[in-house]
């Protein structure tokens, strides 16, 4: 990596505590440009937390994250984010186009309203995810797969260089899944970098260039062929690190200041 082009994402010794309970320990990784990276691990492994920590939404208790060589705040516009579907209220009175336009808000800044150019971008993004016919539909009348596509279109509208996707394949139909995979590879072909939280091991190998095996700490990280081995997956999924989670528990108790014992 030449010093002129800092990597899209660099994480150094990142430890994150949620509600004062550590959920991620000492993550260290560098994501090179133009890769499609899968984050894989069991439930409660801290996959979503890692994404949130990258976005500065879960403050780290130690370590740092750099986006293209700068702290997230200074480079927020280069990051697109696709949250889990359940994270929003789908009864909210907006239609599909409004949601996609929200992706443009970060570029607009205060007091400006989305203009014609923004609408054009939103239209193009909707077309990419094959949701243009639904542009005027209220979001509560969408299927799970369609909701996911809307979120993807919104992230596309952000026109970022690094995309973070939290379980984009959760509960979507087969057509949507392949459509999303398609878009992800198109984005990679354009030189974008993508990190995707994924929970399906059977497809993980097929979809991603690189894998990050996560279970409270980084079990392994590297090209899919090297990482996707029985031993390493066993190490990721095989039982929780009892001592680590015990200590996490006692740590959170201590910090919550509960007297230990009855």
């Amino acid at each position: 990596m030449s010093p002129q082009t800092p990597p899209p994402l660099e994480i150094h010794d990142l430890t994150v505590a949620y509600h004062k309970k550590p959920v991620l320990y000492g993550i260290d990784l560098v994501v090179p440009s133009g890769r499609l990276v899968g984050i894989v691990g069991p439930n409660g492994a801290g996959k979503s937390t890692l994404i949130k920590a990258i976005l500065g939404l879960a403050p780290p208790s130690s370590g740092w994250v750099k986006i293209f060589g700068k702290p997230y705040r200074n480079n927020a516009k280069r990051v697109g984010y696709v949250p889990q579907r359940e994270s929003v209220d789908w009864d909210f009175p907006v239609n599909v186009r409004d949601v996609v336009l929200m992706g443009r808000y970060g570029r607009l800044g205060w007091l400006k309203r989305p203009g014609k150019a923004d609408r054009e971008v939103a239209r193009a993004c909707l077309e990419k995810v094959q949701m243009l016919p639904y542009a005027n539909r209220q979001i509560s009348n969408l299927s799970g797969g369609q909701q996911q596509r809307v979120f993807l279109a919104r992230a596309l509208a952000q026109e970022s260089d690094l995309y973070l996707l939290d379980e984009p394949f959760a509960g979507v139909d087969v057509a949507t899944e392949s459509a999303i995979v398609n878009i992800l590879s198109q984005l990679r072909a354009q030189g974008k970098t993508l990190m995707v939280v994924h929970h399906d091991l059977t497809t993980a190998r097929k979809y991603f260039d690189m894998l990050l095996l996560l279970n409270m700490r980084m079990v392994d990280y590297g090209p899919t062929d090297e990482v996707f081995t029985y031993e390493k997956l066993q190490a990721t999924y095989g039982g929780r690190l009892t001592i680590l989670s015990q200590v996490a528990d006692s740590l959170s108790q201590e910090k919550e200041n509960l007297p230990v014992g009855p």
Binding site: K52, L55, G56, L57, R73, A76, K77, V79, Y81, P83, S87, V88, D89, F92, V94, D98, V99, M102, Y105, G106, R154, Q158
Partner: peptide
Amino acid sequence: VVTSFDPVLATSLG
């Protein structure tokens, strides 16, 4: 609107 709909996105949009 955006902070009401998706505060996480809002924060990540700055």
